[in-house]
């Protein structure tokens, strides 16, 4: 309900600003493919800061586009009309990889862009591209898991099959496990895969399960599934904690949205080069905790985790 109201307000703000503002205003386009709560949250954070700091910026939002063709069509229009564009999600990352754009392009709701070969340097992306990423260092994630499981020896990574973002998860977790001497198991998931079978297969084989940061799991994981009570599970998205995952270490999407707004203002209003602006990450991710799951698993949550965590039951 809140989200609907926000987008309705946004739509009217767009209409009014489009008719009232003069030629000197900047025009910004936002687009993503498919439904994505993460994109919506990031856009909300971005718009909050933009409307406060640069109220004359005229924004056109094309959300939940049906497919990549619609994105191409929208982008053709944006290239003609806009001064800058925000592209969200994997489709946006793919578009940026496939096209060399003259106008500033801001990417968000994507995994690590270096791993995707879009850029080589996080601090200085180069070209006409920058943005924000939900990527969190897997070393931190392993340290986080050890708060719950001090004797951590092995983990299982579940990721979505054929999702380019999964590659980053697999790559960086592998690196982290190697450093921490933790055995890594991985399993590609796709629609039709029976998750119970996977959990049974790895029960007593791994100490913990990590869900990759793909929308796939949010759409396919049942609430408070019994399988989540057999092996301690962790995710990179707080939404899954509400579904029964033990804990998550996830970026604050509103914070990412505000970081993105800062980059846009730097380029459009302060004259900075897009490629000189570092890619943004949430360096202080938030902890979400499901105490019911913890009790069921018999895990005693350290007090220092409880002090900073958002707790669900």
């Amino acid at each position: 309900m809140d989200r609907s109201a926000f987008f309705l307000l946004f739509f009217f703000a767009f209409l009014f600003s489009h008719h009232l503002e003069g030629e000197e205003n900047f025009y910004l386009g936002i687009a993503w493919v498919g439904s994505s709560e993460m994109s919506e949250e990031i856009t909300k954070g971005t718009m909050e800061l933009l409307s406060e700091l640069v109220p004359d910026l005229i924004v056109e939002l094309q959300s939940s586009l049906s497919d990549e063709k619609s994105l191409d069509k929208t982008m053709n229009k944006f290239i003609q009309e806009k001064d800058a564009v925000i592209l969200m999600g994997q489709a946006g990352l793919q578009y940026a990889s496939d096209h060399q754009l003259d106008l500033p392009l801001f990417l968000s709701a994507i995994n690590n862009p270096v791993q995707a070969d879009l850029i080589r340097n996080i601090e200085r992306p180069g070209g006409n591209v920058t943005g924000v990423s939900y990527f969190i260092d897997y070393g931190e994630i392993l340290s986080f898991i050890k708060n719950f499981l001090p004797e951590l020896d092995s983990v299982l990574l579940l990721y979505e099959k054929n999702n380019p973002a999964s590659d980053a998860d697999l790559y960086y977790l592998t690196e982290a496990c190697r450093k921490e001497s933790v055995n890594l198991y991985s399993k590609a998931c796709s629609p039709g895969l029976n998750m119970d079978d996977v959990f049974k297969l790895y029960y007593e084989k791994v100490d913990a399960v990590i869900f990759g940061n793909q929308n796939f799991f949010f759409e396919n994981l049942e609430d408070n599934s019994s399988l989540l009570l057999s092996i301690p599970s962790f995710s990179l998205d707080s939404l899954l904690v509400r579904r029964g995952v033990l804990a998550s270490l996830a970026p604050d999407y509103l914070k990412l949205g505000r970081l993105l707004a800062g980059s846009i203002i730097g380029v459009l209003y302060n004259g900075k080069k897009t490629g000189d602006i570092p890619f943004g990450f949430d360096k202080d991710p938030r902890i979400h905790l499901n105490m019911s799951t913890a009790e069921s698993l018999g895990i005693i949550v350290p007090l220092h985790i409880l002090r900073v965590a958002e707790v669900y039951r």
Partner: peptide, 8 residues
């Protein structure tokens, strides 16, 4: 209070 909030 933290423990109470967490229900433990």
């Amino acid at each position: 209070k933290i423990l109470k909030k967490a229900g433990v």
